[in-house]
Every structure is written in C-alpha cells, then in structure tokens.
C-alpha cells in the first residue's frame, strides 16, 4: 500500500462510544478538503461504526489497520 500523508492524528484511546466518532467529526469539520485525519481508537465498536459514518458522509478511507487492540483509520475529507 502506498504511503498516506497524515495531516492530523487524533488519539481517542480510552474513550467510549461515541467519543471516538465525536473526535473524528470535530477533526473533519475543522479540517480542509483534502486533509487526511487519522483516528486511533481502542473502542471495539469503532471498527464498524467509524467506516459506516465515513461512507455515509461521503468521505474516503485512506488507510485502515489494527495494531493489537488499537484501531487506526485515516480519513480523507472529500467535501
């Protein structure tokens, strides 16, 4: 996979649903179109919920990986 340039990383580990999603929503709202926001979450629900939200809102998943219990998702702001 090609390297993705991360604009900003948000660490939401230790927060419960919907904390990680809220962090990402804030990050996306404050960012510019084209920015890539990477969220780290150790809340298991995030692995399903976050991609669902990204697709619903029409943004793009630039990268996704699991490191132990930590879920990393990089989201490109499309609009």
């Amino acid at each position: 996979m090609s390297q993705v340039e991360i604009t900003k990383q948000l660490d939401a580990r230790g927060t419960y649903c919907p904390g990680p999603l809220m962090e990402l929503v804030k990050g996306i709202k404050r960012g510019q179109v084209g920015d890539v926001i990477e969220l780290i979450s150790d809340d298991k629900g995030s692995r399903v919920d976050i991609p669902e939200w990204v697709n619903k809102m029409g943004h793009e998943i630039a990268n996704e990986r699991l490191e132990g219990e930590d879920y990393y998702i990089a989201v490109r702001k499309v609009k």
């Binding site: 649903c17 919907p18 999603l21 809220m22 929503v25 939200w53 619903k56 809102m57």
Partner: peptide, 11 residues
C-alpha cells in the same frame, strides 16, 4: 441522547 447526537453528526 447518544442516538440523537450521532444522528445529527450523520446529517
């Protein structure tokens, strides 16, 4: 409140 909050953030 959780459902309402997430719904609002989903448009």
């Amino acid at each position: 409140s959780l459902v309402g909050s997430v719904a609002s953030m989903s448009g």
